[in-house]
Protein backbone atom coordinates (compact mmCIF):
# COMPACT_ATOMS: atom_id res chain seq x y z
CA UNK A 1 0.00 0.00 0.00
CA UNK A 2 2.81 2.36 0.92
CA UNK A 3 4.35 1.61 -2.46
CA UNK A 4 1.28 2.86 -4.31
CA UNK A 5 1.04 5.98 -2.13
CA UNK A 6 4.72 6.72 -2.60
CA UNK A 7 4.35 6.27 -6.36
CA UNK A 8 1.39 8.65 -6.44
CA UNK A 9 3.21 11.26 -4.38
CA UNK A 10 6.23 10.95 -6.64
CA UNK A 11 4.06 11.45 -9.69
CA UNK A 12 2.36 14.49 -8.13
CA UNK A 13 5.69 16.05 -7.31
CA UNK A 14 7.29 15.66 -10.72
CA UNK A 15 4.35 15.52 -13.12
CA UNK A 16 1.01 16.69 -11.81
CA UNK A 17 1.99 19.83 -9.88
CA UNK A 18 4.47 21.17 -12.47
CA UNK A 19 2.06 20.36 -15.29
CA UNK A 20 -0.80 22.16 -13.52
CA UNK A 21 1.35 25.28 -13.18
CA UNK A 22 2.75 25.10 -16.72
CA UNK A 23 -0.71 24.31 -18.09
CA UNK A 24 -2.14 27.40 -16.39
CA UNK A 25 0.57 29.56 -17.94
CA UNK A 26 -0.03 28.09 -21.39
CA UNK A 27 -3.79 28.41 -21.01
CA UNK A 28 -3.52 32.13 -20.24
CA UNK A 29 -1.20 32.68 -23.21
CA UNK A 30 -3.44 30.62 -25.49
CA UNK A 31 -6.49 32.58 -24.33
CA UNK A 32 -4.83 35.79 -25.46
CA UNK A 33 -3.95 34.26 -28.84
CA UNK A 34 -7.41 32.85 -29.32
CA UNK A 35 -9.19 36.12 -28.40
CA UNK A 36 -7.08 38.06 -30.88
CA UNK A 37 -7.83 35.43 -33.49
CA UNK A 38 -11.56 35.52 -32.75
CA UNK A 39 -11.88 39.30 -33.01
CA UNK A 40 -9.01 40.48 -35.22
CA UNK A 41 -8.88 37.26 -37.29
CA UNK A 42 -5.15 36.65 -37.42
CA UNK A 43 -2.51 34.68 -35.51
CA UNK A 44 -0.44 37.12 -33.51
CA UNK A 45 3.21 36.04 -33.70
CA UNK A 46 4.20 38.92 -31.44
CA UNK A 47 2.43 37.14 -28.56
CA UNK A 48 5.62 35.64 -27.09
CA UNK A 49 7.34 38.99 -27.07
CA UNK A 50 4.25 40.71 -25.66
CA UNK A 51 4.53 38.30 -22.74
CA UNK A 52 8.23 39.13 -22.44
CA UNK A 53 7.44 42.85 -22.47
CA UNK A 54 4.77 42.47 -19.78
CA UNK A 55 7.11 40.43 -17.62
CA UNK A 56 9.88 42.96 -18.13
CA UNK A 57 7.66 45.90 -17.14
CA UNK A 58 6.59 44.01 -14.03
CA UNK A 59 10.20 43.21 -13.13
CA UNK A 60 11.12 46.89 -13.38
CA UNK A 61 8.27 47.83 -11.02
CA UNK A 62 9.25 44.96 -8.72
CA UNK A 63 12.75 46.37 -8.47
CA UNK A 64 11.36 49.81 -7.64
CA UNK A 65 9.13 48.33 -4.94
CA UNK A 66 11.99 46.25 -3.53
CA UNK A 67 14.14 49.38 -3.47
CA UNK A 68 11.43 51.13 -1.43
CA UNK A 69 11.25 48.08 0.85
CA UNK A 70 7.62 47.49 -0.02
CA UNK A 71 6.89 43.82 0.47
CA UNK A 72 3.90 41.56 0.80
CA UNK A 73 5.90 38.63 2.15
CA UNK A 74 5.27 35.68 2.12
CA UNK A 75 3.97 36.46 -1.38
CA UNK A 76 6.40 37.65 -4.07
CA UNK A 77 6.60 41.42 -4.54
CA UNK A 78 6.05 40.88 -8.26
CA UNK A 79 2.38 40.29 -7.51
CA UNK A 80 2.09 43.86 -6.27
CA UNK A 81 3.92 45.14 -9.34
CA UNK A 82 1.75 43.10 -11.70
CA UNK A 83 -1.06 45.68 -12.13
CA UNK A 84 1.50 48.31 -13.17
CA UNK A 85 3.04 45.87 -15.62
CA UNK A 86 -0.41 45.16 -17.04
CA UNK A 87 -1.07 48.87 -17.46
CA UNK A 88 2.18 49.36 -19.37
CA UNK A 89 1.48 46.43 -21.69
CA UNK A 90 -2.10 47.53 -22.30
CA UNK A 91 -0.85 51.01 -23.21
CA UNK A 92 1.72 49.50 -25.58
CA UNK A 93 -0.79 47.19 -27.30
CA UNK A 94 -3.32 50.00 -27.74
CA UNK A 95 -0.64 52.27 -29.20
CA UNK A 96 0.56 49.57 -31.59
CA UNK A 97 -3.01 48.84 -32.61
CA UNK A 98 -3.60 52.48 -33.38
CA UNK A 99 -0.33 52.99 -35.25
CA UNK A 100 -0.06 49.63 -36.97
CA UNK A 101 -2.99 47.26 -37.02
CA UNK A 102 -5.88 49.74 -37.46
CA UNK A 103 -4.79 50.62 -40.98
CA UNK A 104 -4.96 46.99 -42.10
CA UNK A 105 -8.44 46.61 -40.60
CA UNK A 106 -9.59 49.59 -42.64
CA UNK A 107 -8.21 48.19 -45.90
CA UNK A 108 -9.50 44.70 -44.98
CA UNK A 109 -6.08 43.09 -45.43
CA UNK A 110 -5.78 39.31 -45.69
CA UNK A 111 -4.91 37.43 -42.48
CA UNK A 112 -1.58 36.42 -44.03
CA UNK A 113 -0.58 40.08 -44.33
CA UNK A 114 -1.55 40.68 -40.71
CA UNK A 115 0.62 37.73 -39.63
CA UNK A 116 3.59 39.31 -41.37
CA UNK A 117 2.75 42.66 -39.78
CA UNK A 118 2.78 40.93 -36.40
CA UNK A 119 6.30 39.72 -37.19
CA UNK A 120 7.35 43.34 -37.61
CA UNK A 121 5.75 44.13 -34.26
CA UNK A 122 7.59 41.14 -32.79
CA UNK A 123 10.93 42.55 -33.97
CA UNK A 124 10.13 45.87 -32.31
CA UNK A 125 8.99 44.37 -28.97
CA UNK A 126 11.96 42.04 -29.00
CA UNK A 127 14.46 44.86 -29.38
CA UNK A 128 12.69 47.04 -26.80
CA UNK A 129 12.87 44.25 -24.22
CA UNK A 130 16.52 43.45 -24.93
CA UNK A 131 17.40 47.10 -25.07
CA UNK A 132 15.91 47.85 -21.67
CA UNK A 133 16.68 44.73 -19.65
CA UNK A 134 19.23 42.82 -21.74
CA UNK A 135 19.08 39.29 -23.10
CA UNK A 136 20.29 37.52 -19.95
CA UNK A 137 18.52 35.53 -17.24
CA UNK A 138 16.74 37.45 -14.46
CA UNK A 139 15.32 36.05 -11.24
CA UNK A 140 12.85 38.32 -9.53
CA UNK A 141 11.04 36.00 -7.20
CA UNK A 142 11.17 36.77 -3.48
CA UNK A 143 9.08 36.02 -0.41
CA UNK A 144 8.51 32.50 0.82
CA UNK A 145 9.73 29.92 -1.69
CA UNK A 146 7.57 26.96 -0.72
CA UNK A 147 4.01 26.42 0.44
CA UNK A 148 5.16 23.00 1.55
CA UNK A 149 8.64 21.56 1.18
CA UNK A 150 9.43 17.93 0.42
CA UNK A 151 10.92 17.17 3.88
CA UNK A 152 7.94 18.78 5.61
CA UNK A 153 5.56 16.69 3.52
CA UNK A 154 7.50 13.54 4.38
CA UNK A 155 7.34 14.39 8.08
CA UNK A 156 3.63 15.03 7.92
CA UNK A 157 2.69 11.97 5.89
CA UNK A 158 5.36 9.51 7.02
CA UNK A 159 6.03 8.50 3.40
CA UNK A 160 9.42 8.09 1.72
CA UNK A 161 8.55 10.56 -1.02
CA UNK A 162 7.54 14.18 -0.63
CA UNK A 163 5.66 16.75 -2.65
CA UNK A 164 7.33 20.13 -2.88
CA UNK A 165 4.72 22.77 -3.66
CA UNK A 166 6.35 26.02 -4.66
CA UNK A 167 4.64 29.32 -3.82
CA UNK A 168 4.92 30.32 -7.46
CA UNK A 169 3.15 27.13 -8.55
CA UNK A 170 0.30 27.66 -6.11
CA UNK A 171 0.08 31.29 -7.11
CA UNK A 172 0.06 30.41 -10.79
CA UNK A 173 -2.82 27.97 -10.47
CA UNK A 174 -4.82 30.28 -8.20
CA UNK A 175 -4.28 33.33 -10.40
CA UNK A 176 -5.21 31.38 -13.51
CA UNK A 177 -8.46 30.19 -11.92
CA UNK A 178 -9.39 33.73 -10.86
CA UNK A 179 -8.46 35.27 -14.21
CA UNK A 180 -10.32 32.63 -16.22
CA UNK A 181 -13.42 32.94 -14.03
CA UNK A 182 -13.36 36.71 -14.42
CA UNK A 183 -12.88 36.43 -18.17
CA UNK A 184 -15.80 34.04 -18.64
CA UNK A 185 -18.00 36.16 -16.42
CA UNK A 186 -17.07 39.13 -18.58
CA UNK A 187 -17.68 37.33 -21.89
CA UNK A 188 -20.98 35.78 -20.85
CA UNK A 189 -22.53 38.32 -18.52
CA UNK A 190 -21.50 41.84 -19.46
CA UNK A 191 -22.77 43.85 -22.40
CA UNK A 192 -19.27 44.47 -23.77
CA UNK A 193 -18.40 40.81 -23.46
CA UNK A 194 -21.53 39.78 -25.27
CA UNK A 195 -20.85 42.26 -28.05
CA UNK A 196 -17.38 40.77 -28.39
CA UNK A 197 -18.83 37.30 -28.83
CA UNK A 198 -21.38 38.59 -31.29
CA UNK A 199 -18.66 40.33 -33.29
CA UNK A 200 -16.58 37.16 -33.33
CA UNK A 201 -19.52 35.02 -34.50
CA UNK A 202 -20.81 37.25 -37.24
CA UNK A 203 -19.13 40.54 -37.97
CA UNK A 204 -21.78 41.89 -40.35
CA UNK A 205 -24.67 41.10 -38.08
CA UNK A 206 -22.86 42.66 -35.13
CA UNK A 207 -22.22 45.85 -37.10
CA UNK A 208 -25.87 45.96 -38.18
CA UNK A 209 -27.02 45.81 -34.58
CA UNK A 210 -24.93 48.86 -33.76
CA UNK A 211 -21.87 47.35 -32.08
CA UNK A 212 -18.89 49.69 -32.36
CA UNK A 213 -16.10 47.56 -33.89
CA UNK A 214 -13.30 49.83 -32.69
CA UNK A 215 -14.54 49.48 -29.13
CA UNK A 216 -14.63 45.71 -29.45
CA UNK A 217 -11.09 45.70 -30.82
CA UNK A 218 -9.85 47.99 -28.04
CA UNK A 219 -11.40 45.76 -25.39
CA UNK A 220 -9.80 42.73 -27.01
CA UNK A 221 -6.34 44.27 -26.91
CA UNK A 222 -6.80 45.30 -23.28
CA UNK A 223 -7.79 41.77 -22.28
CA UNK A 224 -5.14 40.12 -24.43
CA UNK A 225 -2.41 42.39 -23.07
CA UNK A 226 -3.49 41.69 -19.50
CA UNK A 227 -3.57 37.93 -20.12
CA UNK A 228 -0.17 38.02 -21.83
CA UNK A 229 1.38 39.98 -18.97
CA UNK A 230 -0.06 37.70 -16.31
CA UNK A 231 1.06 34.60 -18.21
CA UNK A 232 4.51 36.10 -18.80
CA UNK A 233 5.00 37.10 -15.17
CA UNK A 234 3.79 33.75 -13.83
CA UNK A 235 6.09 31.90 -16.19
CA UNK A 236 8.99 34.15 -15.25
CA UNK A 237 8.33 33.67 -11.52
CA UNK A 238 8.08 29.91 -11.92
CA UNK A 239 11.17 29.42 -14.11
CA UNK A 240 13.20 32.59 -14.68
CA UNK A 241 12.89 35.56 -17.00
CA UNK A 242 14.86 35.23 -20.21
CA UNK A 243 13.59 37.03 -23.32
CA UNK A 244 14.42 34.20 -25.73
CA UNK A 245 12.41 31.57 -23.85
CA UNK A 246 9.29 33.60 -24.48
CA UNK A 247 9.77 33.26 -28.19
CA UNK A 248 10.03 29.51 -27.69
CA UNK A 249 6.68 29.54 -25.89
CA UNK A 250 5.01 30.55 -29.16
CA UNK A 251 4.82 26.97 -30.43
CA UNK A 252 3.21 25.39 -27.31
CA UNK A 253 0.84 28.37 -27.04
CA UNK A 254 -0.30 28.15 -30.65
CA UNK A 255 -0.58 24.38 -30.35
CA UNK A 256 -2.79 24.86 -27.24
CA UNK A 257 -5.00 27.34 -29.04
CA UNK A 258 -5.36 25.09 -32.09
CA UNK A 259 -6.03 21.91 -30.10
CA UNK A 260 -9.11 23.56 -28.64
CA UNK A 261 -10.02 25.31 -31.88
CA UNK A 262 -8.61 28.76 -32.71
CA UNK A 263 -11.03 31.40 -31.50
CA UNK A 264 -12.58 29.22 -28.79
CA UNK A 265 -11.71 30.39 -25.23
CA UNK A 266 -12.77 27.18 -23.51
CA UNK A 267 -10.74 25.20 -26.03
CA UNK A 268 -7.66 27.32 -25.30
CA UNK A 269 -7.77 26.32 -21.64
CA UNK A 270 -8.29 22.62 -22.40
CA UNK A 271 -5.51 22.87 -25.00
CA UNK A 272 -3.09 24.48 -22.55
CA UNK A 273 -3.50 21.67 -20.05
CA UNK A 274 -3.41 18.98 -22.75
CA UNK A 275 -0.10 20.27 -24.05
CA UNK A 276 1.41 20.80 -20.59
CA UNK A 277 0.44 17.36 -19.29
CA UNK A 278 1.58 15.58 -22.46
CA UNK A 279 4.87 17.44 -22.50
CA UNK A 280 5.75 16.73 -18.89
CA UNK A 281 4.32 13.20 -18.75
CA UNK A 282 6.17 12.11 -21.88
CA UNK A 283 9.51 13.54 -20.84
CA UNK A 284 9.40 12.27 -17.23
CA UNK A 285 11.63 9.30 -16.34
CA UNK A 286 9.38 6.68 -14.75
CA UNK A 287 12.01 4.36 -13.28
CA UNK A 288 11.47 5.25 -9.63
CA UNK A 289 7.70 5.40 -10.10
CA UNK A 290 7.63 1.86 -11.50
CA UNK A 291 10.05 0.64 -8.85
CA UNK A 292 7.49 1.54 -6.19
CA UNK A 293 4.72 -0.32 -7.99
CA UNK A 294 6.59 -3.52 -8.84
CA UNK A 295 8.21 -6.07 -6.57
CA UNK A 296 11.97 -5.60 -6.16
CA UNK A 297 13.28 -7.98 -8.81
CA UNK A 298 11.03 -6.54 -11.55
CA UNK A 299 12.23 -2.96 -11.12
CA UNK A 300 13.21 -1.53 -14.50
CA UNK A 301 16.87 -0.99 -15.36
CA UNK A 302 16.70 2.06 -17.66
CA UNK A 303 15.24 5.49 -17.05
CA UNK A 304 11.90 4.50 -18.62
CA UNK A 305 11.70 7.91 -20.23
CA UNK A 306 9.55 8.05 -23.34
CA UNK A 307 11.18 11.12 -24.79
CA UNK A 308 14.30 13.11 -23.92
CA UNK A 309 13.55 16.55 -22.42
CA UNK A 310 15.46 18.09 -25.33
CA UNK A 311 12.47 17.22 -27.47
CA UNK A 312 9.70 18.68 -25.36
CA UNK A 313 8.79 21.01 -28.25
CA UNK A 314 8.24 17.95 -30.38
CA UNK A 315 5.32 17.02 -28.11
CA UNK A 316 3.49 20.26 -28.89
CA UNK A 317 4.26 19.76 -32.53
CA UNK A 318 3.09 16.14 -32.70
CA UNK A 319 -0.16 17.08 -30.96
CA UNK A 320 -0.55 19.98 -33.38
CA UNK A 321 0.00 17.66 -36.34
CA UNK A 322 -2.46 15.10 -34.99
CA UNK A 323 -5.12 17.78 -34.56
CA UNK A 324 -4.48 19.16 -38.05
CA UNK A 325 -4.77 15.66 -39.51
CA UNK A 326 -7.75 14.41 -37.54
CA UNK A 327 -9.80 17.45 -36.55
CA UNK A 328 -8.52 20.69 -38.08
CA UNK A 329 -11.15 22.80 -36.30
CA UNK A 330 -9.97 21.62 -32.88
CA UNK A 331 -11.64 19.34 -30.36
CA UNK A 332 -14.29 21.91 -29.51
CA UNK A 333 -14.33 23.60 -32.91
CA UNK A 334 -17.27 23.82 -35.20
CA UNK A 335 -17.26 21.55 -38.21
CA UNK A 336 -16.47 24.12 -40.90
CA UNK A 337 -12.71 24.40 -41.61
Amino acid sequence: MDGILNALVLLSNFVIVPAMAYGSQLALGALAVTLIYAILRFSDFAQGDTMAFGAMATILFTWVLQYWDVSISPLPTALLALPFGVLCTVALCLLIDRWVYRFYRRVKAKPEVLMIVSVGVMFVYNSVVRFIIGPGDRWFVDGQRFIITAPAFKRLSGLDEGVAFKTTQGLTILTAVIVVAALFWFLNRTRTGKSMRAYSDNEDLALLSGIDPERVVRTTWIIAAALATIAGVLYGLDKSFKPFTYFNLLLPIFASAIVGGLGNPLGAIAGGFTIAFSEIALTYAYRKFLAYLTPGEWAPQGLVQLLSTDYKFAVSFVILVLVLLLRPTGIFGRRSP
Partner: peptide, 25 residues
Amino acid sequence: KIALGLRADYLAIATLGISEIIIAV
Protein backbone atom coordinates in the same frame (compact mmCIF):
# COMPACT_ATOMS: atom_id res chain seq x y z
CA LYS B 1 0.69 17.40 -46.95
CA ILE B 2 -0.36 18.03 -43.34
CA ALA B 3 -0.87 21.77 -43.17
CA LEU B 4 -1.90 22.88 -46.66
CA GLY B 5 -5.54 23.09 -47.60
CA LEU B 6 -6.45 24.32 -44.12
CA ARG B 7 -6.41 27.86 -42.75
CA ALA B 8 -3.44 29.98 -43.83
CA ASP B 9 -2.37 30.35 -40.21
CA TYR B 10 -1.83 26.63 -39.82
CA LEU B 11 0.97 26.46 -42.37
CA ALA B 12 2.75 29.35 -40.65
CA ILE B 13 2.49 27.69 -37.25
CA ALA B 14 3.35 24.21 -38.52
CA THR B 15 6.45 25.46 -40.33
CA LEU B 16 7.53 27.38 -37.22
CA GLY B 17 7.15 24.13 -35.28
CA ILE B 18 9.00 21.89 -37.69
CA SER B 19 11.90 24.32 -37.86
CA GLU B 20 12.26 24.27 -34.06
CA ILE B 21 12.23 20.48 -34.11
CA ILE B 22 14.78 20.24 -36.91
CA ILE B 23 17.11 22.47 -34.89
CA ALA B 24 16.50 20.45 -31.72
CA VAL B 25 17.33 17.22 -33.57
